[in-house]
Amino acid sequence: MFFRIVNRVEEAIISLLLVAMTLLVFWEVILRFGFSTGVSWGQEATLHLSAWFVLFGASYGLKVGAHIGVDAFLRLFAPLGQRLLTGVALILSLAYCGLFIYGSWVYLAKMHMIGIELEDIPVPAWLAHGILLVGFVFLGIRLLELFWRVIVGRATGFAMVDEAKESMQLADELRAESAPAATDGGAR
């Protein structure tokens, strides 16, 4: 139950960020083209929304297997071998995360100390850039979770998404829809 809620909240935040930045840019075009005016904080806001979107979404992407990678080599091994190699990859990934968490912390602490704000939006820089730390902490948690599943044998790899498989899903949907329509020859 708890995890279902976390999941829904995560999905809602990610979708909201994407929709917000799309609509903001769209709105700026309407304002400029239709009313010869702009949003003075628009550009900075869009860019920061995109930063939040990517950094917050990275860990969600790991959970749902949205990141792409090459698993051809891994597949040459038996499941135990795959789990071992994935374990190594996970340790290195955790190191990556740890280095970034440390770096972000130092960076944000410095920004906090100096006390500067963003250029067009009166928000402290450390707060607006804080997603660096949040994002990498979340990513680290997800990596640990995956590590645990590899140890107990419930996963053998990063379970990356296949863009091809994804497109296939779309193909299946289309086929299901068009099955009756396509009987009269060709695609009409």
Binding site: R32, T37, S40, Q43
Partner: peptide, 9 residues
């Protein structure tokens, strides 16, 4: 001067 300033990269 009643012009519209726009911030653009």
């Amino acid at each position: 001067v009643d012009a519209a300033p726009l911030k653009k990269p």
